[in-house]
Amino acid sequence: MTKQAIILAIDTATSACSVAIRVNGVTYERFEVGSNVHSKVLLAMVQSVLQEAQLSVAELDAVAVSQGPGSFTGLRIGVGVAQGIAYGCGCPMIGVSSLETLAWQAAVDGLVIAGIDARMGEIYWCQFLVEDGSVSQLGNAKVSAPADIALSSDALLVGNAWLEYAELLSLTESDGLNVLKGVELPRASASLDFAQAQYLAHKTVAAADFAPIYVRDNVAKKAKSQI
Protein backbone atom coordinates (compact mmCIF):
# COMPACT_ATOMS: atom_id res chain seq x y z
CA MET A 1 0.00 0.00 0.00
CA THR A 2 1.32 3.43 -0.98
CA LYS A 3 2.23 5.61 1.98
CA GLN A 4 0.04 8.70 2.12
CA ALA A 5 1.86 12.00 1.98
CA ILE A 6 1.26 14.53 4.73
CA ILE A 7 -0.18 17.53 2.91
CA LEU A 8 -1.37 20.79 4.42
CA ALA A 9 -4.20 22.28 2.33
CA ILE A 10 -5.15 25.97 2.35
CA ASP A 11 -8.05 27.72 0.60
CA THR A 12 -8.54 31.49 0.71
CA ALA A 13 -10.06 32.06 -2.74
CA THR A 14 -13.42 33.31 -1.45
CA SER A 15 -14.89 34.81 1.72
CA ALA A 16 -14.20 31.43 3.31
CA CYS A 17 -10.82 30.75 4.88
CA SER A 18 -10.00 27.11 5.51
CA VAL A 19 -7.09 24.86 6.37
CA ALA A 20 -7.01 21.05 6.46
CA ILE A 21 -4.64 18.14 6.91
CA ARG A 22 -5.19 14.37 6.93
CA VAL A 23 -3.14 11.96 9.02
CA ASN A 24 -3.77 8.20 9.20
CA GLY A 25 -7.18 8.66 7.62
CA VAL A 26 -8.29 11.37 10.04
CA THR A 27 -8.97 14.85 8.63
CA TYR A 28 -8.40 17.93 10.75
CA GLU A 29 -9.93 21.15 9.47
CA ARG A 30 -10.59 24.77 10.34
CA PHE A 31 -13.17 26.77 8.39
CA GLU A 32 -14.37 30.35 8.84
CA VAL A 33 -16.39 32.72 6.67
CA GLY A 34 -16.19 36.48 6.95
CA SER A 35 -15.18 39.70 5.29
CA ASN A 36 -11.40 40.21 5.29
CA VAL A 37 -10.77 37.45 7.83
CA HIS A 38 -7.96 35.69 5.97
CA SER A 39 -5.04 37.80 7.17
CA LYS A 40 -6.37 37.67 10.73
CA VAL A 41 -7.03 33.95 11.15
CA LEU A 42 -5.03 31.96 8.57
CA LEU A 43 -1.78 31.51 10.50
CA ALA A 44 -3.69 30.63 13.67
CA MET A 45 -5.68 28.03 11.71
CA VAL A 46 -2.48 26.45 10.40
CA GLN A 47 -1.01 26.27 13.89
CA SER A 48 -4.26 24.87 15.27
CA VAL A 49 -4.63 21.98 12.81
CA LEU A 50 -0.96 21.05 13.12
CA GLN A 51 -1.26 21.02 16.88
CA GLU A 52 -4.41 18.90 16.79
CA ALA A 53 -2.78 16.47 14.34
CA GLN A 54 0.34 16.43 16.55
CA LEU A 55 2.58 17.44 13.68
CA SER A 56 5.30 20.00 13.14
CA VAL A 57 5.82 22.00 9.96
CA ALA A 58 9.01 20.03 9.35
CA GLU A 59 6.95 16.84 8.92
CA LEU A 60 4.97 18.16 5.95
CA ASP A 61 5.56 16.53 2.57
CA ALA A 62 3.82 19.31 0.61
CA VAL A 63 1.59 22.36 0.89
CA ALA A 64 -1.49 22.56 -1.34
CA VAL A 65 -3.13 25.94 -1.85
CA SER A 66 -5.94 27.36 -3.93
CA GLN A 67 -4.37 28.86 -7.03
CA GLY A 68 -7.57 30.53 -8.20
CA PRO A 69 -9.77 31.80 -9.53
CA GLY A 70 -11.13 33.93 -6.75
CA SER A 71 -10.52 37.03 -4.67
CA PHE A 72 -7.25 38.71 -5.64
CA THR A 73 -6.48 39.66 -2.04
CA GLY A 74 -7.53 36.28 -0.67
CA LEU A 75 -5.41 34.39 -3.18
CA ARG A 76 -2.34 36.50 -2.47
CA ILE A 77 -2.69 35.93 1.27
CA GLY A 78 -3.14 32.17 0.91
CA VAL A 79 -0.33 31.74 -1.59
CA GLY A 80 2.00 33.95 0.46
CA VAL A 81 1.45 31.93 3.64
CA ALA A 82 1.74 28.63 1.75
CA GLN A 83 5.00 29.74 0.14
CA GLY A 84 6.39 30.78 3.51
CA ILE A 85 5.59 27.37 4.98
CA ALA A 86 7.01 25.54 1.95
CA TYR A 87 10.21 27.57 2.08
CA GLY A 88 10.50 26.92 5.80
CA CYS A 89 10.22 23.14 5.59
CA GLY A 90 11.80 22.74 2.16
CA CYS A 91 8.76 21.00 0.69
CA PRO A 92 7.06 21.49 -2.70
CA MET A 93 3.70 23.12 -3.40
CA ILE A 94 0.59 21.89 -5.20
CA GLY A 95 -1.78 24.24 -6.99
CA VAL A 96 -5.49 23.57 -6.58
CA SER A 97 -8.37 25.07 -8.56
CA SER A 98 -11.01 26.61 -6.31
CA LEU A 99 -13.64 25.58 -8.86
CA GLU A 100 -12.43 21.98 -8.96
CA THR A 101 -12.54 21.89 -5.17
CA LEU A 102 -16.24 22.77 -5.38
CA ALA A 103 -16.75 19.96 -7.90
CA TRP A 104 -15.13 17.51 -5.47
CA GLN A 105 -17.52 18.72 -2.78
CA ALA A 106 -20.49 17.85 -5.00
CA ALA A 107 -19.75 14.12 -4.56
CA VAL A 108 -22.46 13.31 -7.13
CA ASP A 109 -21.79 11.67 -10.50
CA GLY A 110 -22.64 13.66 -13.61
CA LEU A 111 -22.04 17.07 -15.15
CA VAL A 112 -21.15 19.64 -12.51
CA ILE A 113 -20.72 23.35 -13.17
CA ALA A 114 -18.88 25.22 -10.45
CA GLY A 115 -19.32 28.97 -10.19
CA ILE A 116 -17.89 31.61 -7.87
CA ASP A 117 -19.08 35.20 -7.65
CA ALA A 118 -16.32 37.20 -9.37
CA ARG A 119 -17.86 40.55 -8.39
CA MET A 120 -18.26 43.32 -10.98
CA GLY A 121 -21.34 41.46 -12.24
CA GLU A 122 -19.38 38.42 -13.43
CA ILE A 123 -18.91 34.75 -12.56
CA TYR A 124 -15.82 32.54 -12.47
CA TRP A 125 -17.00 29.16 -13.75
CA CYS A 126 -15.96 25.84 -15.22
CA GLN A 127 -17.56 22.52 -16.15
CA PHE A 128 -16.50 19.18 -14.66
CA LEU A 129 -17.45 15.54 -15.10
CA VAL A 130 -17.72 13.74 -11.77
CA GLU A 131 -17.60 9.98 -12.18
CA ASP A 132 -16.72 7.09 -9.86
CA GLY A 133 -14.98 9.28 -7.32
CA SER A 134 -12.91 11.22 -9.85
CA VAL A 135 -13.27 14.73 -11.25
CA SER A 136 -12.32 15.68 -14.82
CA GLN A 137 -12.21 19.29 -15.94
CA LEU A 138 -14.03 20.05 -19.21
CA GLY A 139 -12.41 23.09 -20.78
CA ASN A 140 -10.74 26.07 -19.16
CA ALA A 141 -12.03 28.19 -16.31
CA LYS A 142 -13.71 31.36 -17.56
CA VAL A 143 -15.01 34.66 -16.27
CA SER A 144 -18.31 35.68 -17.87
CA ALA A 145 -21.36 37.83 -17.42
CA PRO A 146 -24.27 35.71 -16.12
CA ALA A 147 -26.32 36.24 -19.28
CA ASP A 148 -23.49 34.79 -21.39
CA ILE A 149 -23.52 31.43 -19.58
CA ALA A 150 -25.95 28.91 -21.08
CA LEU A 151 -27.01 26.36 -18.47
CA SER A 152 -28.90 23.12 -18.91
CA SER A 153 -31.14 21.75 -16.18
CA ASP A 154 -29.31 18.41 -16.29
CA ALA A 155 -26.19 20.06 -14.86
CA LEU A 156 -25.66 20.21 -11.12
CA LEU A 157 -24.58 23.69 -10.05
CA VAL A 158 -22.24 24.27 -7.12
CA GLY A 159 -20.80 27.49 -5.75
CA ASN A 160 -22.16 30.80 -4.53
CA ALA A 161 -22.62 32.42 -7.96
CA TRP A 162 -25.75 30.71 -9.24
CA LEU A 163 -28.29 31.93 -6.71
CA GLU A 164 -26.57 35.32 -6.53
CA TYR A 165 -27.16 35.89 -10.25
CA ALA A 166 -30.16 33.59 -10.80
CA GLU A 167 -32.33 36.24 -12.47
CA LEU A 168 -29.62 37.08 -15.01
CA LEU A 169 -28.65 33.56 -16.07
CA SER A 170 -29.50 32.12 -19.47
CA LEU A 171 -31.21 28.74 -19.02
CA THR A 172 -31.58 26.23 -21.84
CA GLU A 173 -34.42 24.55 -19.95
CA SER A 174 -37.40 26.02 -18.16
CA ASP A 175 -37.07 23.85 -15.06
CA GLY A 176 -34.95 26.35 -13.17
CA LEU A 177 -31.59 26.00 -11.48
CA ASN A 178 -30.44 22.64 -10.15
CA VAL A 179 -28.30 24.06 -7.35
CA LEU A 180 -26.73 21.77 -4.77
CA LYS A 181 -27.39 23.41 -1.43
CA GLY A 182 -24.62 23.46 1.14
CA VAL A 183 -21.83 23.69 -1.43
CA GLU A 184 -21.44 27.44 -1.82
CA LEU A 185 -17.79 27.95 -0.88
CA PRO A 186 -14.69 25.77 -1.35
CA ARG A 187 -13.25 23.92 1.64
CA ALA A 188 -9.58 22.97 1.91
CA SER A 189 -10.49 19.46 3.09
CA ALA A 190 -12.17 18.74 -0.27
CA SER A 191 -8.86 19.30 -2.09
CA LEU A 192 -6.87 16.72 -0.11
CA ASP A 193 -7.59 13.74 -2.39
CA PHE A 194 -6.68 15.74 -5.49
CA ALA A 195 -3.53 17.06 -3.83
CA GLN A 196 -2.53 13.54 -2.79
CA ALA A 197 -2.88 12.30 -6.37
CA GLN A 198 -0.84 15.22 -7.68
CA TYR A 199 1.91 14.58 -5.16
CA LEU A 200 2.13 10.87 -5.99
CA ALA A 201 2.26 11.78 -9.70
CA HIS A 202 5.13 14.20 -8.96
CA LYS A 203 3.04 17.13 -10.18
CA THR A 204 4.36 19.65 -7.70
CA VAL A 205 5.90 23.11 -7.97
CA ALA A 206 8.83 24.67 -6.14
CA ALA A 207 7.80 27.49 -3.81
CA ALA A 208 9.88 29.99 -5.79
CA ASP A 209 7.99 29.18 -9.00
CA PHE A 210 4.45 29.13 -7.61
CA ALA A 211 1.97 31.86 -8.60
CA PRO A 212 -1.81 32.37 -8.49
CA ILE A 213 -3.95 32.00 -11.62
CA TYR A 214 -6.31 34.95 -11.62
CA VAL A 215 -8.30 34.20 -14.85
CA ARG A 216 -9.28 37.88 -14.91
CA ASP A 217 -6.10 39.96 -14.88
CA ASN A 218 -7.61 43.36 -15.67
CA VAL A 219 -9.55 43.82 -12.44
CA ALA A 220 -7.73 47.01 -11.48
CA LYS A 221 -8.45 48.58 -14.86
CA LYS A 222 -12.14 47.63 -14.71
CA ALA A 223 -12.54 48.89 -11.16
CA LYS A 224 -10.98 52.23 -12.07
CA SER A 225 -13.28 52.65 -15.07
CA GLN A 226 -16.34 52.21 -12.84
CA ILE A 227 -15.38 54.91 -10.32
Rank of each mutant, 00 (worst) to 15 (best):
G68N: 09
M45Y: 13
E52I: 04
S66N: 07
G34S: 01
V26K: 15
E29G: 05
S35K: 00
V26N: 12
G34K: 00
L75Y: 05
M45S: 03
R30L: 07
V81C: 13
Q67I: 12
S39P: 03
E29D: 12
H38R: 05
T27W: 04
S48E: 13
S48Y: 04
A62T: 06
T73E: 02
Q47E: 15
S48I: 01
S48V: 02
E32V: 04
Q54C: 13
S71R: 02
I77K: 05
G78S: 06
G25L: 12
G70Y: 07
S71D: 09
I77V: 14
P69S: 08
V81T: 12
S48H: 10
Y28W: 14
A58F: 10
A82P: 01
L42D: 03
G78D: 07
G80Q: 08
A64L: 06
V65Y: 05
G25S: 12
L75D: 11
A58N: 13
S56D: 15
G68D: 09
V63M: 10
A64E: 04
G25H: 12
N36W: 00
G68A: 08
E32M: 10
F31R: 08
A58T: 07
V33L: 01
T27C: 14
G70N: 02
A58H: 13
V46F: 03
F31T: 03
V57F: 13
V81M: 08
T27Y: 04
M45W: 05
A58L: 13
E59L: 09
F72R: 04
L50M: 15
V81H: 04
P69D: 11
A58Q: 15
T27A: 14
D61L: 11
A64D: 09
A64V: 05
L43Q: 05
S56G: 15
